[in-house]
Design a protein around this nucleic acid. Structure first.
Lengths: 258, 258
DNA sequence: CCGAATCATGCATAAACAGGCAAGTCTTCA
DNA sequence: TGAAGACTTGCCTGTTTATGCATGATTCGG
């Protein structure tokens, strides 16, 4: 039994019964409670359940919408690691624009509570994922909501963004390549990202290793406009060199800790 | 039985019966009264109930400071019934503003797919709840996101709303009373609702029966400004007469089907 | 004002917990 | 084929949490 498979089963059971008990799960899957605890901790970090003493509770149905993107995700672990690493670069008092996308939602969910940030986003799921009572101010940019991308797009969104001047843009990339730069699958999404890129003082891109060296059809930014690239080192160290030569600071998540 | 689960059950029972007795609970859950007392103390500290000698009382809805997330999934059945009834009044081509609140999110989730609506909302969860691929256009109003109310509030939100002219406003009420009118718990939420009321051509209020005849601290609309009131008939038929006299059309959900 | 019930608090115990460590498995690359 | 590295898992450590019981203090009803 693969750990992901086990987690999927736990998720099903949460849906069905509303709660799970660590001990029962350990029994059922014939693994130690430690392993189950690790699973539950991981699932909770992705917003798939609420961790409680002794087990976990299903998140109320309405809250689950927040994680729809992550739920579909095949590699939540990697994204969560990326997000955690990215979070460590957010400094107290910063104004940070959080782009749409599952990795960014994961980032919103694990913002450092001890810092006080002003967060801007056009992604409702990200706004809702920010843990309440943490002192972060969240400003949501409106517009036509696109269920496909999980973000607000269109002219209204663009014109609102033009009034902003964030210290940092945390950009999710569909593809990033030294020559093609940052690219996206959706033209409107790309337009918003492009607009964001012109407004922010600094740009940090989050991209899992499989996106390095790939290009989607719609251009967002020149690679040179990116200041930092957070990725998982697992693969493609060779490819990273080209980014470094463009003056991009490479942040390795996964092996190094936050 | 997980301790958090126990507390949730106690909460449900408070909702249902209005009070709980420590001894009964200890019996029911097979724990000591001390444990129940600890639960009740904790719940009271979160404002979920009022501690009294021998047990606890449900706080009137107007006094609960439950987080939005907690409030959201109370009595999903009733809310869903209300929402379904409300949905039957939405006509093809209408521009509908959907207010924040759990009942409204339920409405967004079960909009009639065969009709094509333009939906406006300042509630991200509602926008995300609209089933994709149904042909409804969703426009999300931005602003400062308040985790407490689950909606965008503040001046930005207000000024965006002023540019709108929806055919129908579906308003969630924290309290509705023939004399006090529609009221809300949060001043900013009330300000947004008030603004909405001035823009819409028609106003439909969704309110579970427990909110009828109650008033929260902040005024939203005169009762006379409401065109339709969707509620569950379960209780307070006497109270309904006063609304009818104000020219409000009363829609009963629950008994009658959609 | 009295007895009984209820309560808050401190303590002891057992369970659950996070984090670190090491053994085993799998993949990757030479 | 074999070595290196990532991942998973179980176990160990000390810490935290939930619970029941004992002890006085408080509250209630008469």
């Amino acid at each position: 039994m693969l750990s992901r498979e086990r987690q999927a089963r736990i998720g099903e059971r949460l849906d069905r019964e509303g709660k799970v008990v660590a001990q029962d799960l350990a029994d059922e899957f014939a693994v130690s409670e430690d392993t189950i605890r690790r699973d539950l901790r991981e699932m909770a970090a992705q917003g798939l359940c609420e961790r409680v003493y002794g087990g976990a509770l299903a998140r109320p149905p309405a809250l689950r919408h927040e994680s729809f993107a992550q739920r579909r995700d095949r590699e939540p672990r990697r994204k969560s690691d990326l997000a955690r690493k990215a979070a460590s670069f957010l400094e107290d008092g910063m104004t940070v624009f959080i782009d749409a996308g599952s990795t960014n939602i994961a980032l919103a969910a694990q913002l450092p509570p001890e810092r006080r940030l002003t967060l801007l986003t056009h992604c409702p799921a990200a706004a809702m994922a920010v843990t309440p009572c943490t002192g972060h101010a969240v400003h949501l940019i409106g517009g036509r909501y696109s269920a496909e991308t999980g973000a607000c797009l269109g002219s209204q969104t663009l014109s609102e963004i033009e009034a902003l001047r964030p210290d940092l843009l945390v950009l999710g990339a569909c593809g990033i390549d030294p020559r093609a730069g940052v690219t996206a699958f959706d033209p409107e999404d790309a337009a918003v990202k492009r607009c964001l890129g012109t407004r922010a003082r600094s740009v940090m891109v989050l991209a899992t290793a499989d996106k390095l060296g790939t290009a989607a059809p719609f251009a967002v930014l020149e690679a040179g406009a990116v200041n930092r690239l957070v990725t998982d080192t697992a693969a493609g160290d060779a490819g990273l060199e080209a980014f470094r030569e463009l003056g991009i600071e490479i942040i390795a998540a996964g092996s190094g800790d936050a």
